[in-house]
Structure formats: C-alpha cells, structure tokens
Design a protein around this nucleic acid. Structure first.
Length: 589
RNA sequence: GGUCCCGUAGUUCAAUGGAUAGAACGGAAGUUUCCUAAACUUUAAAUGUAGGUUCGAUUCCUACCGGGAUCACCA
C-alpha cells in the first residue's frame, strides 16, 4: 500500500505540477496516533513547486488519490500531511487472506547466496559475553536474510593456532598430569581455559622472581623460562613436531566438544567450520601471488607489504620477514577457500568493531588483487558489550562466561516462574523446557533489541527482566493467544467475517500488515533490532486489544470469528518473528 | 597525535530530514465477579555545548566538550 501511495502520488504530482519525481522520493509514513488515518503522505516538498497553500495542495492530491485507489475510504489534510484512511473491506480481506495462507508473507527468491561468518572463537578459552552477542547477531541476521529470500551459508572460523594456543598447551604439559575433561568432570573448553590462566599466573611468578633479582620488567619477560619454552613450542608446532601436534589435536578436540555443547544450548548452527591452521598456508600463497603481480612489495628487511597510503591507511605487513604469516595472511587464505567452496555473492563477517581497521585492509587488499569476491566482503561491525564497570578484562577476572551466564538465566527464569505458580500442572520435562525457553528468550531479546552497531551495557545482575520490553513479555503474549484458541475451537479458521474494526483492532492490523516491510529493512541493514522492536509493538498492541475486547465472549459470532482470526494471525507472526531472532515461544506459561 | 564510532528521561534502549522526541525499568496513582495481572490504564521525567544548511534537524555540516575503539613482523 505504501508503495502504491508513492507511485500514485508521484504520478499525480508530476501531472499536476509538471515535476519529474520518482515514487521513491515520496515520503509515506504511518499516520501518527493523534490523527485519523492509516498512512500519511508528506507533501511539503512539492508545496513550493505548486505555489499554493499546503492545505490546497493536500486537497488536490487527496482527491486524486481517492479516485485512483479503491481501497482508500477517506483522507484529511493537516498542514503538509495528507492522512489516508483505508476501507474496512481492505482490512477484512487482508486478515482473511493472510491468516489462511502460511506463505502470505513469504519472499520470492533473490537468487543470491550470502555467507555469514559468526562466532569465531579462539581455542584456548571458553566462550564469553562478547561471543554471545556475536552469535546472537550472526545467527539472527542469517535467519532474517533467509526469510528475505536469500540462500544463506553460515560459517564459523576457529582461531586454533598461534602463541596463545601454545600457552595453555604448555601449562597442561607442565601442570596437567594426565587429566582429561572426562576425568575431571568439566567441559573441555573450560579446562583448557583454566590452563591458559594457569600459564599467566605462573609466568607472573617467574617474572616477579627475576625482577627481585634485579632485572627490569622487559628483560624479565624475555628471560622467563615459560616465555622461552612457549616460543619453542610454537616453532615445533610450525615444524610439524609430532608430539606437539598430538597434544594440540587432543586439547583442541576437548575445546571443540565444549563449544559444541554451548552452541547446542544457544541454539545456533553452522554449515561449515573453518580453521586457521588450514588456511594460513593458503594465505601465504596469495601473498606470493600478489608479490609476483607487483601488487605487493618486499621491504628492505624482507617483509612483504602493501601500500595503502592512497586509501588513507598505512603500509601494512602481509608476511613477516622470516616468511611466517600474520593475522591478515590467514584471512586472505580463508576468504579464498570459502569462495572456492561456495562461490557466495556476499561474504558477511560478524566481528566486533574493534576490528574495523582490519576489515578495511582485508577488503582493500582483495580489491587490489582483483579477487572476484572483493566487492562482496562486508564487515558486520557490532559494538562491544561493556559491564557497568567498563570493559570486560580477562586479566581482571571480569569476563562473563557464556555457560555460566546462560545457566543463571535459566535459574532466574525458574525462580520467577515458580513464584508465580505458573507450572503447577506441568510435567517436569515441560517445566524445564519452559525455564530454558524463558531464560534464553530473555537473554537473546535483551541483546538483540539493541542496534548491533552500538556499544551496549550489560549488567549480569540487573539487566535481565521478565517484564516490559522483554522476550518473556512476547512469549507470554503468544501463550495467552494459544490459550484463547484452545478455548475457542477451530471453526473460526474457515470463517470470512466482515466487521467494522475498532481502534485497537485496526492498530494491531496495521502493525501486522507492516511485518514484511520490517523484514526487508532488517535484511537490508543487517539489523535484528528492527525486527525485535516491531515484534514488541505487535505484542503490545495485542495486549491492549486483549484488555479492551472480549474475544470468545464477543457480541456476535462474526465478531468473535474476526477477533479469533486476528489473534491467531498475531500469534503466528509473533512465532515467526521470534524464530528469526532465535527465540522459541511456549504454548503455555 | 591521525582515523573511526558514540553522547536522548534517574537507568537501559527507540525515533528512512517530518506532526506534540517513543518505550521499558525505577517513581506516583489506578484496574481481577468475565478469554492467563509475566498484563492493562493514567502520570511526572530527556536530545552534551555553540553555530550553520532547511518550510522543518535527535537525524546532515562545522567547531568545541565528554566517552570508546583503532593506528604491531599480537591474534
């Protein structure tokens, strides 16, 4: 309807005033609630051209539109705004058609293949709050893109090699005995993470010891036996030393098992996991290739570099003077491999905004190499999650562990639910499922309702609520609808009511009608928050409607059927929308 | 210092350049003979500062103030 209004308005204005406006230049809004109408055309921009009063221009356009669009019942003009009201028949048939056809809001295929990378953990410690935001956003963006008609490939990248990985390996070798996650009864990623911390602690002791003997801090760091040993270990790894490689395989295996458990708990999935240990060598080949093509050059000290000063950046090293790879080397390899694997039209990287610079470089370098996929590289740069005390710091022990956080969420959900006595006639498995859905729903919604690009504050103790603008609010609304449906039976589904909808009904209908526009916008902007906000508006509209109107006890059968169709359709949109955020909705709660 | 991002009620978040800046939590006051009160209704409370562009600016531009990130042969 908005598009139709744009087109008609443009045509009318062009005809009346001799302009050459395109439909996209016309502003169409939802009518503000203080005024009568559903959609509003803003006409300020052509008032000047028409050389008439805004009210007169509005009248002319309104009259013409009324003639052209049969679904419009009336209009009114307030200053430069023309408010159009749609006919009852329009809303009745919209509701009947949309609620019957499950594919009513489905999008046609775009024939585009989009790859989304998200998660991207290191294999030396468990997932934390930062990964949680990353995973929620990456997963939800993928689902939204799918809903908008794209083919989506979800991939993960494991940063599984390097000095930081060797640190936990060395600590395990020295202090781990023959412990395994199984023997200790802990998750593999947590156990490996503990050894990573252990390395740091022991190193500190060594450094302090050396400094007590008169060395300055810098020298002490260099001479600390652990630091020397860990470098040796990395070298051994690079040379394929069988013992080190076996240890690496074993410990990374533990971590992967732990991660899989967390992914399952979170409810995310991947089509393929890439490992940097598999791609860093490929990256070196690409750097060689660029050097041979004279896109890159060797500095006097032998490091291979690219000059990005023309693009406002600096000189960037792509391969060390000793021929080993740097961070970006492996990203070049990974990108190339991914393109060979899937040939996506777009590669979206879900990575925190602290790496904006890195991805600018990656894109520029692939452009200079004239890679086909360069144009499709897109950094979905999200803001960091801060605690009320500031940034999370592993050294200060303020990192919020993902598994623990989720566990606490579920526990809180359970406490709140028991307090309300909602699960008294639930079976135990049903109840546990509900606590899980509510806990995860609260957490996911809390994070996803915020614009991904913005930095956000998370207070583990206070942030999560089950009232107001929250996941559980929407889940509750859904459960309420299902409850009404259980009481009403199924006959309404085939009914074709024709009623004069009241204000709260119209408001809800309009919110539902706008759902596909929101999906389009969310997909375009890679922004689940747009969807989260809109689903909330729908739920809120429904609750107002619910409080004001009797559904099952409606005055007439026709009205009852109408309200049941409206409720049913609201429920299905809430469920679909929440699904795209990765949130389940319960049938009762 | 260079580059980039961000400053909106007490707090956490909204607002393709459009109407009287929306919500939620917290505060104040209400709503249960009737479909689930994790709900609904009412109410007080905000655009960092100074300019500019515009019929119209939270939104765009400039300067300043405040916060954050980044500028490695670390990943």
């Amino acid at each position: 309807m908005e598009q139709l209004l744009r087109e008609k308005t443009a045509a009318i204005v062009n005809k009346l005033y001799g302009t050459k406006l395109s439909a996209q230049e016309i502003t169409v809004n939802q009518t503000a609630k203080e005024f009568t109408g559903d959609f509003t055309v803003v006409i300020f921009s052509f008032v000047k051209i028409a050389k008439k009063k805004p009210e007169d221009v509005g009248k002319e356009i309104g009259d013409a539109i009324l003639n052209e669009i049969s679904d419009i019942e009336s209009f009114n003009v307030v200053k430069g705004f023309v408010n159009f009201k749609l006919k009852n028949e329009f809303w009745n048939s919209f509701l009947i058609n949309a609620s019957r056809d499950e594919n009513y809001f489905s999008f046609p295929s775009t024939n585009k293949k989009i790859m989304v990378e998200y998660a991207g953990p290191n294999t030396n410690k468990p997932l934390h709050l930062g990964h949680i935001r990353n995973i929620f956003i990456g997963y939800s963006v993928s689902e939204i893109l799918k809903a908008a008609g794209n083919e989506v490939i979800k991939v993960n990248i494991y940063n599984d090699r390097g000095i930081h990985i060797c640190k936990s390996m060395l600590a395990y070798q020295k202090y781990g005995g023959n412990e395994t996650p199984k023997s200790k009864g802990v998750k593999g990623d947590h156990m490996v993470g503990d050894f990573y911390v252990k390395f740091d602690q022991e190193l500190k002791i060594q450094i302090a010891g050396l400094m007590a003997r008169g060395l300055n801090e810098e020298d002490a760091k260099k001479k600390a036996p652990l630091n020397i040993e860990v470098k040796e270990m990395l070298l051994k790894w690079e040379n394929g030393d069988s013992e080190v490689r076996a240890l690496w395989e074993m410990m990374n295996g533990w971590v992967y098992d732990g991660f899989e458990e967390t992914y399952k708990l979170i409810g995310c999935d991947f089509n393929k996991h890439y490992k940097e240990s598999d791609t860093y060598l490929l990256g070196k080949n690409i750097v060689e290739e660029g050097f041979n093509k004279k896109v890159f050059y060797k500095r006097q000290d032998g490091a291979v570099c690219v000059d990005l000063t023309e693009d406002g950046l600096d000189e960037k090293v792509l391969m060390r003077s000793d021929g080993t790879s740097v961070y970006i080397t492996q990203d070049l390899g990974t990108a190339d491999l991914r393109y060979k694997d899937f040939e996506p039209d777009q590669m979206i990287y879900t990575v925190a905004n602290e790496q904006d610079y890195h991805f600018k470089v990656l894109k520029l370098v692939t452009e200079k190499l004239e890679k086909k996929y360069a144009a499709g590289i897109n950094h979905l740069s999200y803001g960091m999650v801060d605690l009320p005390t500031g940034r999370m710091k592993s050294r200060e022990g303020t990192v919020v562990d993902a598994d623990i956080l989720i566990e606490e969420m579920i526990r809180t959900a359970k406490e709140q639910t028991l307090e309300l006595g909602k699960t008294e006639n639930f079976s135990e498995t049903e109840a546990e499922k509900l606590y899980y859905e509510l806990g995860m729903g609260a957490l996911k919604f809390f994070i996803l309702k915020v614009d991904p690009r913005k930095r956000m504050i998370f207070n583990p103790k206070e942030s999560i609520d089950f009232h107001g603008f929250t996941g559980p609010f929407i889940q509750y609304t859904y459960a309420r609808i299902q409850s009404v449906k259980r009481k009403a039976g199924n006959t309404f589904k085939s009914s074709t009511p024709s009623v004069h909808a009241n204000e709260s009904e119209l408001h809800l209908l309009l919110q539902l009608y706008l759902y596909p526009n929101i999906i389009t916008e969310a997909a375009k902007n890679l922004d689940p928050a747009l969807l989260a906000n809109h689903i909330y508006f729908i739920a809120k509209s429904f609750n107002s409607f619910y409080a004001e109107n009797s559904i099952v006890q409606a005055e007439t059968v026709e009205l009852k059927n109408f309200r049941l169709l409206l409720s049913d359709f609201t429920g299905s949109i809430l469920k679909r929308g929440m699904k795209l955020l990765g949130i389940e909705v319960p049938e009762r709660m």
